[in-house]
């Protein structure tokens, strides 16, 4: 599998991060009516920056998206493992509500659509790469 990493590039890992982001946003939408629930999100560019930092430190290989090694995110609870939640942080509410809930359904919906679109974009890239490989293998 490692031999295929240069072909697929960062899209394979990007899929995983976008899926995790969709999970977090789905939890936000599910808890839209839960008192004292605080909305969270994954910052994709932060994950990318962390991955780049790690790549530079490791000095070599193609750019990949690895989950951060320590819980530097503001929202990361003690139980967070590096693989499960990269760069998780609390959302700053646009309007505060009386029950302490910070979920804004419109914001969450648009963020969910955004994550789904990025997921699909990565899928398209991967699909194209696989088709290219198949063409190279079958030679027609």
């Amino acid at each position: 599998m490692a031999d295929l990493d240069p072909v697929f590039g960062l899209h394979a890992q990007s899929l995983a991060v976008q899926r995790q982001r969709m999970e977090v946003l789905a939890a936000n939408i599910a808890n839209a009516d839960t008192p004292h629930y605080q909305a969270r999100d994954i910052d994709f560019s932060k994950v990318l920056a962390q991955a780049q930092g790690q790549q530079q430190a490791a000095a070599g290989g193609s750019l990949g998206l690895a989950a951060p090694s320590s819980g530097q995110a503001a929202g990361a609870a003690a139980s967070a493992t590096p693989e499960t939640m990269p760069a998780l942080s609390y959302r700053v509410p646009l309007q505060t509500s009386i029950d302490g809930n910070t979920v804004d359904e419109q914001v969450e919906q648009s963020a969910y659509a955004d994550a789904a679109m990025h997921y699909q974009a990565s899928l398209s890239f991967l699909s194209g790469q696989i088709k290219g490989l198949m063409t190279a293998i079958t030679g027609q």
């Binding site: 599910a30 839960t34 609870a77 139980s79």
Partner: peptide
């Protein structure tokens, strides 16, 4: 009464 579902170890995405 709604509450976030208890978080399973390692999973930070609670249901309700």
């Amino acid at each position: 009464m709604f509450k976030s579902a208890p978080e399973i170890a390692g999973q930070q995405t609670p249901g309700v």
